[in-house]
């Protein structure tokens, strides 16, 4: 184990929520500026979570708390797996398990809003999962291994060999980060028809835990984006950060310019994009081998 494999996971556990929260804050500020408003402070998400921690706990039931904690825990485990340089396919699977815990935390309240939102959450998982798994396959084909250090060690810069996988992953990312037009189960803006979607029955502490888990998730996903560029050279970390920044700004722009679409349409768009871009890329990689 190289020192980087020990430092990165520790950094992730400590800094993950800060990075994710800051990204959230920048998102809210930039969105406000795009709409011609002044907007909240960049630290606003942290203020929100601090307040939520201090409110009276009214839970629908105890199971919700436990399930949300499992969601958070599995999210951290996913990050640990990824940043400590183990199997990328493994971390993607643990990530799906985390999403399932979130689904249970939502559906077990039985409220009508949550029931609809949890179904939509499942459709969202169905939509992005193929793109994410195919991305892992792409890494394997180029680097010859699923292990993150091996992918980083390979000679080629990943994005030059797998641009199609990257584009498909962007679609998955928009779904995963709950950005318009794919924010069908819950979003950063109020829903007309679902109140807060999957967040409807979460209040106080539970919502704070959900929020922190989402921050970990954004930090993790951005790590995956960076993997498309980062290799052993120190300069590549810089370019990786640039790519992450560009991708995130694009997501904010998308969020502010697109209207939410129906979940059936989302499923179609994301799957077609996956088949088209990932499929073509896969074909080319197979033929070149």
């Amino acid at each position: 184990m190289s020192p980087i494999q020990i430092i990165f996971p520790i950094l992730f556990v400590i800094l993950g929520p800060f990075v994710g929260g800051l990204m959230d804050g920048i998102d809210r500020k930039l969105s406000a500026r795009l709409q011609g408003r002044i907007g909240p402070s960049i630290l606003q998400p942290f203020y929100d979570v601090r307040k939520l921690m201090n409110k009276q706990v009214i839970g629908v039931n105890r199971a919700q708390y436990a399930l949300l904690l499992s969601y958070l825990l599995l999210m951290i485990v996913t990050g640990l797996l990824f940043f400590s340089g183990s199997d990328i396919l493994m971390s993607v699977f643990v990530l799906s398990t985390a999403s399932i815990f979130l689904y249970f935390a939502v559906v077990e309240t039985g409220s009508p809003y949550n029931t609809i939102a949890s179904n939509r959450e499942l459709v969202q998982i169905m939509a992005y999962e193929p793109a994410v798994i195919l991305m892992c396959v792409g890494f394997y084909l180029v680097a010859g291994s699923f292990n993150v250090p091996d992918i980083m060690q390979s000679e080629t810069i990943m994005i030059t060999r797998m641009p199609g996988f990257f584009i498909a992953f962007l679609f998955a990312l928009a779904v995963k980060l709950r950005k318009s037009p794919f924010d069908v189960s819950t979003g950063h803006h109020a829903h007309q028809e679902l109140v807060q979607g999957i967040k409807t029955e979460m209040g106080a502490r539970n919502l704070a835990i959900f929020q922190i888990a989402e921050w970990y998730e954004s930090a993790l996903l951005m790590g995956m984006v960076a993997l498309f560029i980062v290799d052993r050279r120190p300069l590549s970390f810089f370019f990786g950060a640039l790519l992450v920044l560009a991708v995130y700004l694009f997501m904010i722009l998308l969020d502010n310019t697109a209207a939410r679409i129906k979940y059936t349409k989302m499923l179609k768009i994301v799957w077609i994009a996956t088949i088209l871009f990932s499929g073509l890329n896969l074909l080319v990689l197979m033929l070149m081998r």
Binding site: I38, P40, Q44, A190, V195, Q196
Partner: peptide
């Protein structure tokens, strides 16, 4: 945009639990 209450951190939530 003219008044922008969100600069005080105000969020118009539709959810009494929050």
């Amino acid at each position: 945009p003219v008044y922008d209450a969100e600069r005080f951190g105000v969020v118009n939530t539709g959810d009494p639990l929050q």
